[in-house]
């Protein structure tokens, strides 16, 4: 059994807006084994980015973690003081973001932005930090690093900037790298470079990666474990093979069925009808029930827990619980699933 480095249990995060409390994250649980990559996948509004920001407590001022636990090597980060939390950020747990074009400060050089982290967390001198910055740029595959280190972000392409972001994140040898849609804004050939780089560095440095993405292709190729999110909750957590070979939750099944594949021909896509519910008007019961082809009265009344299948995989669906009132063989988006009952 691999050691768990990060364990998120029943995380809840709310935003307080003029229209009321928005429960953006409302019951998220997953764990990150040491040295592995876990993907958090979901569509827009599923709460996947808020989850990642909640882990590092980087929410905007109107957002607040209202419940749950985030355990990093056993310690609950939600109970940390702000000062203690700060010493962790960019040091033990680092983060990179979706928009490389806007994530770097335009008025500081690349070198200044990398060395800042080193000075803050490792107490390096300015000179030593600058020298280390050059090494880091070399590590992330930037050509002529001693020249680039003196340049400003506007002088770099999107792919280069994302490499700089990675250099900043890796400066202090973090144990966890959280990557929030790191390649979504990049072209596919550049995406391949960046994903390859992350994988390469992960193997060299032994860190764990939390990859937030909407791209199931990226998940299949990069992740060891996957948490699927829908409407602020994790609906399925399993290893990557099980998820793609035998997805359990109807939402996961639907998602895979509606995906146009670059590697094979499909006669017809099977879409999930309807739309994602608004966080201000969540449906009663299972949040997917209005769009689920197998929904029963139980699904419309009571929210299922994350049920464990005994093999480390979890699913938030009544089909896999003894209380399931429907048929034993359930048709889910054209696939058969066997109920637990």
């Amino acid at each position: 059994m691999v050691e768990t480095i990060l364990d998120v249990r029943d995380l809840r995060t709310s935003f307080y807006t003029d229209e009321g409390e928005v429960k953006a994250v409302d019951g998220v649980s997953f764990s990150v084994p040491k040295g592995k990559t876990i993907g958090i996948v979901g569509e827009s509004g599923s709460g996947k980015s808020i989850t990642s920001l909640s882990i590092l407590r980087l929410l905007a001022s109107n957002g607040k973690v209202v419940g749950g636990e985030v355990r990093f090597k056993g310690d609950n980060l939600l109970a940390y003081s702000e000062k203690k939390m700060r010493s962790l950020r960019g040091n033990k747990i680092s983060m990179i973001f979706q928009e490389p074009m806007t994530s770097l400060n335009p008025v500081f050089t690349v070198g200044q932005q990398i060395s800042e982290t080193l000075i803050e967390h490792q107490g390096m001198s300015k000179k030593a930090a600058m020298a280390k910055s050059v090494d880091l740029l070399k590590l992330v595959g930037i050509p002529s690093p001693d020249k680039r280190v003196k340049q400003y972000p506007y002088e770099l392409s999107g792919g280069m900037r994302q490499r700089v972001m990675i250099a900043i994140a890796l400066a202090c040898n973090p144990e966890i790298l959280i990557a929030d849609e790191p390649t979504t804004a990049l072209d596919v050939t550049i995406q391949a470079q960046i994903l390859g780089l992350i994988r390469d560095l992960q193997q060299r440095m032994g860190m764990s990666v939390v990859l937030i993405t909407h791209d199931l292709g990226v998940v299949a190729e990069t992740c060891d474990y996957v948490a699927v999110m829908y409407a602020g909750q994790v609906v399925e957590y399993s290893d990557v093979r099980t998820l793609f070979r035998k997805p359990k939750h109807p939402y996961t099944v639907g998602l895979l069925k509606s995906l146009p594949r670059p590697d094979e021909d499909q006669e017809k896509l099977i879409p999930i009808h309807g739309t994602v519910p608004s966080p201000l008007h969540m449906p009663v019961g299972c949040r997917f029930n209005p769009r689920c082809p197998a929904a029963t009265d139980l699904c419309r009344e009571k929210l299922p827990d994350l049920f464990d299948d005994g093999e480390g995989n979890q699913v938030r669906c009544w089909i896999y619980n003894e209380q399931w009132p429907g048929e034993k063989e359930v048709d889910v988006f054209g696939e058969e699933r066997t109920a637990r009952c």
């Binding site: 280069m160 596919v188 050939t189 550049i190 292709g217 299949a220 190729e221 995906l259 594949r261 670059p262």
Partner: peptide, 25 residues
């Protein structure tokens, strides 16, 4: 060839070799 090979495919069992193009467009 490189473009097609760079796309991540939603199949964890597929061979995962991607041609990497150097540099930017």
């Amino acid at each position: 060839k490189a473009l097609l090979s760079a796309i991540p495919v939603p199949d964890p069992d597929r061979e995962r070799n991607h041609i990497v193009l150097r540099g930017d467009v």
